[in-house]
Amino acid sequence: MPLIDVMISVCGKPFQTSLALMSLERECGRHIDKIYFVEENTKSQNIDAGSHEWVLDQLKDKIVHFVPTRWNYCFPLEADKLADTDYRHSVRYQYGWEMSDKDHVLVIHNDVYFHGDVVAAMLDNIGDSICLGHVGQCWYCPAAFAGKCASDRHLEYRPDFDELNRLYKTTRAPEGYNTRAYFKPTWDDRFVRQPWPLPECRVNEWCALVALHKARKLTVPHGRVVPFGAIIGVGKQIQDVSCQWFREMHHRGQVCRNFDIYKYMHHDVPPTGQATLITKDRYADKELEALERLKAEFGFVAQG
Rank of each mutant, 00 (worst) to 15 (best):
Ile4Met: 05
Val6Ile: 09
Met7Val: 11
Ile8Met: 06
Val10Lys: 06
Thr17Ile: 04
Leu19Ala: 02
Ala20Glu: 03
Leu21Tyr: 05
Leu21Ser: 04
Glu25Asn: 15
Asp33Ser: 10
Asn41Arg: 11
Ser44Ala: 15
Ser51Asp: 05
His52Thr: 09
Trp54Leu: 06
Asp57Cys: 10
Asp57Gln: 11
Gln58Val: 11
Phe66Glu: 03
Val67Cys: 12
Trp71Ile: 08
Tyr73Gly: 09
Pro76Glu: 07
Glu78His: 14
Glu78Trp: 02
Ala79Ser: 14
Lys81His: 09
Leu82Lys: 02
Thr85Ala: 15
Ser90Gly: 12
Arg92Asn: 10
Gln94Gly: 04
Asp101Lys: 11
Asp103Pro: 01
Val105His: 04
Val112Gly: 03
Phe114Met: 03
Phe114Tyr: 11
His115Val: 05
Val118Ser: 04
Val119Pro: 03
Ala120Phe: 02
Met122Val: 02
Leu123Ala: 07
Asn125Lys: 13
Asp128Lys: 13
Leu132Tyr: 04
Val135Phe: 00
Gly136Glu: 04
Gln137Arg: 15
Tyr140Arg: 07
Cys149Gln: 10
Ala150Tyr: 06
Leu155Gly: 13
Pro159Ile: 07
Pro159Trp: 01
Glu163Ser: 00
Leu167Trp: 05
Tyr168Phe: 13
Pro174Lys: 08
Pro174Ala: 01
Pro174Glu: 01
Glu175Asp: 08
Gly176Lys: 01
Tyr177His: 14
Thr179Tyr: 00
Arg180Lys: 14
Ala181Cys: 06
Ala181Lys: 15
Trp187Phe: 08
Gln194Phe: 09
Leu198Met: 08
Cys201Thr: 08
Cys201Arg: 08
Trp206His: 14
Cys207Arg: 00
Leu209Ser: 01
Leu212Asn: 06
Lys214Ile: 15
Arg216Pro: 02
Thr219Asp: 01
Val220Thr: 15
His222Ile: 10
Val226Trp: 01
Ile232Ala: 04
Val234Trp: 03
Lys236Asn: 13
Met249Thr: 07
Met249Val: 09
Met249Asp: 08
His251Val: 07
His251Pro: 00
Asn258Ile: 02
Phe259Gln: 05
Asp260Lys: 01
Asp260Gln: 06
Pro270Tyr: 03
Pro271Leu: 11
Gly273His: 14
Ala275Phe: 13
Ala275Ser: 12
Thr276Pro: 00
Thr276Asn: 13
Asp281Asn: 12
Glu287Gln: 11
Leu288Lys: 15
Glu289His: 12
Arg293Ile: 06
